[in-house]
Amino acid sequence: MTSELDVAAPPWPYNPSAWSQRIPICVLALVAFGISVYMALYQWRLIDSVWDPVFGEQSMRVLDSDVSHAMRSWVGFPDAALGALAYLGDAVFGLAGSTRRWQYRPWLVVLFGIDVIPLGVVSAVLVVMQGAVVGSWCFLCLVTAVISLILVYWAYDEVWSSVRYLQRVWRESRSIHVLWDAFWGRNHPVAESVALEPGAASA
């Protein structure tokens, strides 16, 4: 069964769903989760200050800014805690699924991709914009922004494998029903035949 699961996923010569690929993503996401929770603790006033070796008190100005307060009243939750939840999602969705989930659970890989890629890019852009809007910088926010971009780089290959697999299912079947089943991880002869299709790497 293990050999059945650990297969290279087209178009890559390796398996992007292998644990060796996913564990670093989960560990890094958990580091960012920890940093975000630390900043959220300050926003909840459960700690008095935030450690910042570069910008000093500017961090607290960012976390107490009008933009941050406005976000808290709109979302009903501090923005740092919201970031923490996004990183927790990265780690949890990174851990779920077998080492062939790019084929067996594309919905999970797509969900993981949505959590990591667009949300990661948006959060990184927002953090960098803080400097321009608030006029202060926050070292730990910048660290999490860098982590977000690393996660995007590490995660995109698996998402791309799933998307390409669904694309092959669609090309072969031209059936929404088969595509829907493949997306939700239901087995189908067409899905089975195109998953490791020879020449898929050049397709």
Partner: peptide, 26 residues
């Protein structure tokens, strides 16, 4: 904030399938 936080954390975990490390039954 507790309700929103608990709800969002629950949303993340409730999506994960029960036998998450295994392939689906089929």
């Amino acid at each position: 904030e507790n309700w929103v936080g608990v709800g969002l954390v629950l949303l993340i975990f409730a999506i994960v399938p029960s036998e998450a490390l295994q392939p689906p039954m089929g």
